[in-house]
Design a protein around this nucleic acid. Sequence first.
DNA 1: GCTCTTAATCTAAAAAGTCGATACTCTATG
DNA 2: CATAGAGTATCGACTTTTTAGATTAAGAGC
Lengths: 306, 306
Amino acid sequence: MSSSTFNNKLPNLKHLNYLLALDKYQHFNKAAEACFVSQSTLSSAILKLEQQLCCQLLEREHKRFIFTSHGKQVVALAQKLLLNANEFTTFAQQQGCYNSGSVNLGCIPTIAPFILTDLVQACQKDLPNIELYLREDTTDNLLFQLEQGEIDCAIVAFPIPKNNFFSKKLGQDDFYIAGDKTLVNRFQASLDYQSLPEKSVFLLNEEHCLTEHAVSACKLADASLINSFSASSLATLVQMTAFHHGVTFLPEMAVNKGVGKLEGLLIEPMKGEVYRDIGIVWRKTSMREATFMSLADVVSKASLSQ
Amino acid sequence: MSSSTFNNKLPNLKHLNYLLALDKYQHFNKAAEACFVSQSTLSSAILKLEQQLCCQLLEREHKRFIFTSHGKQVVALAQKLLLNANEFTTFAQQQGCYNSGSVNLGCIPTIAPFILTDLVQACQKDLPNIELYLREDTTDNLLFQLEQGEIDCAIVAFPIPKNNFFSKKLGQDDFYIAGDKTLVNRFQASLDYQSLPEKSVFLLNEEHCLTEHAVSACKLADASLINSFSASSLATLVQMTAFHHGVTFLPEMAVNKGVGKLEGLLIEPMKGEVYRDIGIVWRKTSMREATFMSLADVVSKASLSQ
DNA sequence: GCTCTTAATCTAAAAAGTCGATACTCTATG
DNA sequence: CATAGAGTATCGACTTTTTAGATTAAGAGC
């Protein structure tokens, strides 16, 4: 049923409240007093209701009145309706508060598995009034969803392809080189990609921003080194790298969570300033910056080195 | 929770409708058109809602807007609320119609068992839009409940002790004499109560108006004839009358339904104009006279001789 | 730069809601 | 039988809310 099919005369909820008071006190003056309005106001409100609803709620006898049986049923329904309305306003208002309400948080797949458990726990502890809903997707998809309002904010790796958002850096995620012991040692000694065989560098497929960031941060210029196989998850990537005796780049948060702990796989921090930035983004038009900042704090403390 | 605890700002339901339209069309002009109001009206209504609910429903960007995630939740709740409100008005309005709505009908115990089955069936057939609720009680109690609005009308035997009601005669219910064959025959031959032994007349207890009406209609003046045992139901009365070889008076509607068909009990119509009037009463202030008249017709046709 | 689209804003008018005073009528009381 | 008291309806003035129409402002597309 569409909204336009509601063609009934909708009653004024305030007036329904008057009706309930009248039912409760069975007395116009007392009911009016309880509603902080004058008796005439309450009287005409009831008349108005009867007129709008085209029904008789009271039987009047100049000095006394009684509710019709229909009136009583209407009162009962009005009670339900007002309870519902009250829940509605309570819900709507609660959300206005600082650090409360639901937050739809997006996160890219090369971050999500390594921070979300900690984040959820820390959030329950530090931001108990926030209901966190999580969604994992690629940066591009997340930014699109963010624009559409399908999510409220997203944790991504910088830089991001669009800049029509506000963002805050959460921390720095250093890259590690992981792979065949010989190859890794050779590279670490020389810091020269020419020490690696052709097609020995394994990466995630291109929809993952980690690939681009790793290539860029690690200054991997020679495309011929990159193996055409591209994994769609870090777990697969590590497996394939080990199996084919190649090398790959892993972010610290993955290494910390044990990704890459595999027979015959050597993991070493990249030398020099080789990292990706992790940050949170939200729409410029959002009014919940303060809440997102709190969330950012929680993430930083729980999962990231500064 | 009392009505006065609803101190939240209650939203204007019409404005919630505008909000739903905006959600549906995602466009102020189209939504306004669908609501048959101007764009400025819809725009300011949404602003007003946000202000009243102290929350942000939309994120605006001068030419476009999106719903906040909170706004979406509010829309969902508003939808529920409006559905509820619509049910409310639909219910309230339906009742205004002629021959529809619920009718709380009272009936005295010396009538109820003999007409209600027929009445309910006839009502379902002839007045299908009336929801009939039945209550059995004594005349005094019914009239009190009628005054209080706990019932809408009542079927009683005339005369009644109060006359501040409107009423309509439904029919005439002749009295029968029932009892020990010898006593009944002796009385019918002489029409003289002196033909009956002392304490041989059994009656219902005094809260039943049948007692008074029978005594009055049958012109039973001599109290010494009346047995001090008084039954509280016609079934008991008949049993006791038979057991003690006495006599009693039964209304025709009871006789027709087989009350008094008992071994050794003779039932004969009283001679002369000996009857009680059956009628329906309602408050003078009630506006549903037409409906009660229809109900009266149904009762008359279904159960009573004119 | 120009036009088109779209939502917000401003102003005036209409509608709805409210109050205080008063009218009306029933009940109680002497 | 008159009178006072109580309780609800009604009236007119006033306030608040809602509305429409014109205008403004800010992108988007050409």
